[in-house]
């Protein structure tokens, strides 16, 4: 690929290739330890969790029992949390990606009054500490009675400034002005142009923002921690952390450890799967054919 053919077969090349792969493998082991640990631990009973070596399976395969405990503990509230997480992440992810695509397209392809100022505001937004926002959002939403409803998590999560920035850059790059102008000459209105021409070419960018926003909501902890107070509305992150706090506080919650392990595994599998599936999708460049680079 990137190699000048003369060196590709030389001994020194093969040698360096071996050592660099070893360097990668070392970091891979480090990356994999916690994931391996959660896989191993979720197969153990609570007793084995503390009685056997943490990084290897015990003889007793307790995985299905743990799953059953996970989904039945406290009247099966974990499945409720899982559904909440899916609801919050899907709605926020799709909404945030769509709005970011609209906005990024506007910033990339139009001239309008206040463009520089509003774009600077969007960029500056990444510097704002979460607490500076989440606490006043809590106070404001409690005035309108939205605290402790799904909206309290979904609405703020729809605002995803990095997505706007990403879509602007993506539209600058992947969508030529001439293509939009061709649409105008063809007599199409701007909304028609967006959905029939532009959006198709922005799809890889959209998919990227979608997955980033989806994961941001799936993994969010601080926002739901503050804005939700009834256990029925919790996402997995908040719920599991409460069980974990109970387990580590030493006040009789120690039986929860293996349930927390199983819950952790269940909560990371969908995100990893989403990344792996989407990974292939956003690699493809749809815009290569009609407009030359």
């Amino acid at each position: 690929m990137a190699i000048v053919s003369k060196t590709a077969n030389s001994a020194s090349f093969r040698n360096s290739r071996r050592w660099l792969t070893v360097a990668l493998a070392l970091y891979f082991i480090y990356t994999f330890i916690p994931i391996f640990y959660v896989i191993v631990s979720s197969t153990k009973s609570n007793a084995d969790l503390f009685g056997t070596f943490g990084l290897w399976f015990s003889g007793d395969f307790h995985f299905w029992q743990n799953l059953q405990d996970l989904f039945t503990y406290q009247d099966g509230i974990f499945s409720r949390w899982l559904l909440n997480t899916i609801l919050y992440s899907v709605v926020s992810g799709v909404g945030a990606a769509l709005f970011a695509t609209f906005a990024g397209y506007a910033f990339s392809k139009f001239e309008f009054v206040g463009k520089k100022l509003s774009f600077a505001l969007v960029l500056g937004a990444v510097m704002i500490p979460q607490t500076a926002l989440v606490i006043p959002i809590f106070l404001l939403l409690s005035k309108v009675g939205l605290v402790n409803t799904p909206w309290a998590v979904i609405l703020p999560s729809l605002v995803f400034p990095p997505g706007v920035f990403l879509m602007k850059v993506y539209a600058d790059d992947a969508l030529s002005n001439e293509l939009i102008e061709a649409g105008r000459v063809d007599g199409a209105g701007e909304v028609h142009i967006f959905f029939n021409i532009a959006f198709r070419l922005l799809t890889p960018g959209f998919a990227t923002v979608l997955i980033l926003a989806f994961v941001a909501t799936w993994n969010n902890y601080f926002l739901p921690l503050v804005l939700l107070n009834s256990s029925d509305n919790f996402p997995v992150t908040v719920g599991l952390s409460q069980w974990y706090a109970l387990a580590t506080s030493g006040s009789g919650g120690a039986v929860l450890f293996s349930i927390v392990m199983a819950g952790s595994l269940v909560s990371i599998v969908p995100v990893i799967a989403a990344f792996l599936i989407m990974q292939r999708y956003w690699q493809g460049g749809l815009g290569a054919g009609g407009v030359k680079a």
Binding site: P34, Y221, L240, S267
Partner: peptide, 9 residues
């Protein structure tokens, strides 16, 4: 992959 793991987890 660790990026996909919630910081809580």
């Amino acid at each position: 992959i660790p990026y996909a793991v919630p910081s809580v987890i």
